[in-house]
Nucleic acid binder design. Structure first.
Length: 732
DNA sequence: AGCCTCTTTATTTTT
DNA sequence: TAAAGAGGCT
């Protein structure tokens, strides 16, 4: 046996060893939470290299995040020298790699830069200058949604949006982007799909190149990514996907659990391996997690087990408000086990009360997530300067920087450039053509601007790219500009730019290297989390915890409407609830030894103090595996007693068939003015009909079937501002 | 170009 | 509530 392989296999227990070794392709590995997914993938890679004699460079491993890719690379590199030649990339950077090789074929500039969502909005603004930004934002996100499904403007876009104007917006956007020659994030997946579909030679070559393909976190793939896989994998290729359908929590951004659920059907002769041993959590925690996720219908099903003992029972705590919640957590932290503890919440806003309290009590904490380095204006500005250098057609970049620093080029001057943009795609050329019409300061500035771009940048290519970028930006006095703003605003913009430039010091001073640098900035910006290395309690959203583990986990805000989230006053369809339940499962399985769950009766929401019920998920926890404090007494008794559960009654309601608006016969009891058959209008959901009315825990609860097919459970007293009763024949 | 005020709108997040 | 966007005014 190859030494690499035996070394990796030693890390696995017997059943895993068996599975990984004898797994035939295609291989679907259903790996439960805490089962060591990444380790299994690296072992599989070692197996392919060692036992199957597949050349490392013929192996492609795909992940979702840069972090996951880096982690896997590190592990693979540890295995042996040759295995560092395995290509490990995110879906997007693999797509970019493929497109670089075939840029012209797909209508891209070889030096294309990657537009993010905000650039997409700005591109739309160049087409529709009079539309408010917010409206264009909606179209931009619809376009990106369409691309996630691999849909072109010519396809039927009804599934993405019913807006009759959307196809036109998308078509014009696409046309302009192709003319500019740049790519957006969606293109990085959907264009390679087209490339491989339409060009037999390319597809053949790529399939020969990558003999074996492995995908991590397969449950997070969207339609386009799955289509890319289908193109990459021919009869001769080996495919192995690893995922956990129970941890699919990114449906909202296009991930389709269906991909993993239907994998066996789509790839015949799939061998399925379940990795069900959990190496992370103690017994009660694992039992609680399993019991909750068992309530989901659409899942393949696994039975997690652990060799560890039962451990402590997870604790459920009820408080009256946030103040009590933070006080309790602060009290827990008296033991100073800061690094071992993570506080999890559903929405970022919930971190605030903890931050305030921790600052007051001198408890060190680190806030994970949010604020990306590249959302910083000044960095985007610098990249726009460079982008225009690479691509004279980049109108988005030009508009961003033409008057930054302010050089007297206002709306008037720009409107004089616009007509020339109809004649030429080269925006610098258009500016030059407009010069005879410009006057005063604007004219002088624009002359200087175009002259600065005309001067050659590279001389003898002796210096690093950082040197040349600095030289180039100096032509526009950018540093002085930001230094001035820093002094006025107390910001650190200049430092941020230096940081950006410094990261270019490992590149040589050539155009090709600049392209490489820009791609790196677009796809893999250095993380700029200032709190990353800070020691302290971890404050983190549940979504962000994927792949992490903590000795002690506190899941806060276990309240209906917050978690599972409803739109403030509305509880969404079953699919949404199942996704929230999976999120809860992810959160629970982060805990190694101790788990706390807290629920508040009152919590401020949109400025008002709102009352809510304990999360339904708390009721799904098996009583024998948890210990529970008394819930807020107004709800009467303990919340584990099912009769008192405010949700129990409404759960028995039989919902009408989805998509069908059955209008129930009126009549029956009338409560608070509502009865079965009452017609309503809701600001967000449109027309609907009440099909059930109950009085529950002192609140009126109605079930509504909307025309859209959506069903909802509403509490009229909490959403009177959005909900309206309609007369019998009055549909709006 | 920048300041001021009025209005709108409230997840989750990667690339 | 509060933060961001839009639009008007100087």
């Amino acid at each position: 046996m190859h030494p690499l392989l035996s070394k990796q296999l030693d890390l696995l227990n017997e059943p895993q060893k068996e599975s990984v070794l004898h797994g035939k392709d295609p291989l679907l590995i259903l790996a439960g939470a805490g089962s060591g997914k990444t380790r299994v993938i690296t072992t599989r890679i070692a197996y392919l290299i060692g036992a199957e004699q597949i050349h490392p460079a013929s192996i492609l491993a795909v992940t979702f995040t840069n972090k996951a890719a880096a982690e896997m690379k590190e592990r693979v590199e540890k295995m042996a020298p040759g295995s560092s030649r395995v290509m490990i990339k995110t879906f997007h950077s693999f797509g970019a790699w493929l497109l670089r090789l075939n840029a012209e074929l797909m209508g891209l500039k070889p030096s294309f830069v990657i537009y993010d969502d905000k650039d997409a909005v700005e591109l739309l603004r160049t087409i529709y200058p009079d539309q408010p930004r917010n409206e264009l934002k909606v179209y931009a996100s619809l376009i990106s949604k369409a691309k996630d499904e691999c849909l072109s403007p010519s396809d039927n876009l009804k599934e993405v949006s019913n807006d009759p104007r959307f196809p036109e917006y998308y078509a014009k956007y696409e046309e302009k982007l192709r003319r500019v020659g740049n790519a957006d994030f969606g293109d990085l997946i959907s264009l390679p799909v087209r490339l491989l579909k339409e060009h037999d030679e390319v597809r053949k070559r790529i399939r020969q190149r990558f003999r074996a393909i492995l995908v991590d976190e397969y449950q997070d793939t969207n339609r386009a990514q799955d289509m890319l896989l289908e193109q990459l994998v021919g009869p001769e290729n080996r495919l192995c996907v690893v995922g956990d359908d129970d941890q699919s929590i990114y449906r909202f951004r296009g991930a389709r659990v269906e991909n993993i659920l239907s994998f066996e059907k789509r790839f015949p002769d799939t061998k399925v391996i379940r990795l069900e041993e959990n190496y992370r959590s103690t017994g009660h925690i694992l039992a609680a997690a399993s019991a909750v996720v068992n309530n989901n219908q659409g899942r393949l099903g696994k039975t997690l087990w652990t060799q560890k003992g039962d451990g402590e029972k997870p604790r459920v705590l009820y408080f009256s408000d946030q103040r009590e919640e933070t006080a309790y957590v602060t009290d827990l932290l008296k033991d100073k086990r800061y690094e071992e503890t993570a506080i999890l919440y559903r929405t970022n806003a919930q971190s605030k009360s903890f931050e305030d309290c921790f600052r007051k009590n001198n408890i060190p904490y680190r806030l994970v997530g949010n604020l990306s380095f590249y959302e910083r204006e000044e960095v985007k500005d610098c990249l726009a300067y460079l982008s225009l250098l690479l691509n004279n057609a980049d109108e988005v970049a030009m508009r961003r920087i033409i008057n930054k620093p302010t050089r007297g080029v206002g709306a008037g001057a720009i409107s004089k450039i616009d007509p020339f943009l109809d004649d030429t795609d080269d925006v610098l050329e258009a500016i030059k053509l407009s010069l005879p019409h410009q006057r005063g300061k604007a004219k002088k500035s624009l002359e200087e601007f175009t002259a600065a771009y005309a001067r050659p940048l590279w001389d003898d290519e002796k210096d690093s790219l950082a040197y040349y970028i600095r030289q180039f930006l100096d032509r526009f006095s950018l540093m002085e500009h930001y230094r001035g703003r820093d002094r006025a605003e107390g910001t650190t913009r200049e430092d941020n730019i230096h940081e950006l430039i410094n990261s270019a010091s490992e590149y040589r001073g050539t155009t090709e290297e600049l392209v490489r640098f820009m791609e790196e900035q677009g796809l893999n910006p250095p993380s700029h989390d200032e709190t990353e290395h800070v020691q302290g309690v971890t404050l983190i959203t549940m979504h962000n915890t994927k792949g992490l583990e903590f000795e002690r986990v506190i899941i806060t805000g276990m309240e209906e409407g917050l978690f599972p989230r409803g739109g403030g006053d509305i509880y969404e369809n079953e699919e949404d609830t199942e996704e929230e339940r999976r999120l809860f499962y992810v959160a629970v399985t982060r805990a190694m030894k101790e788990l706390y769950m807290t629920s508040c009766r009152f919590r401020p929401r949109y400025g008002r103090l709102e009352e809510s019920w304990p999360s339904r998920f708390l009721n799904e926890l098996p009583a024998e595996h948890i210990s529970e404090s008394a819930p807020y007494d107004d709800f009467g008794g303990s919340s584990s007693s099912k009769e008192q559960d405010p949700w129990n009654e409404s759960q028995d309601v039989s919902y009408p068939e989805a998509g069908k608006l059955d209008i129930p016969q009126g009549g029956g009891k009338v409560l608070g003015g509502y009865s079965v058959g009452t017609r309503v209008y809701h600001d967000d959901y449109g027309n609907g009909v009440v099909f059930n009315v109950i009085q529950n825990g002192g609140h009126l609860v109605i079930n509504v079937q909307f025309e859209s097919g959506k069903t909802a459970v509403l509490m009229p007293e909490f959403c009177s501002h959005k909900l309206e009763k309609l007369a019998h024949d009055e549909w709006q």
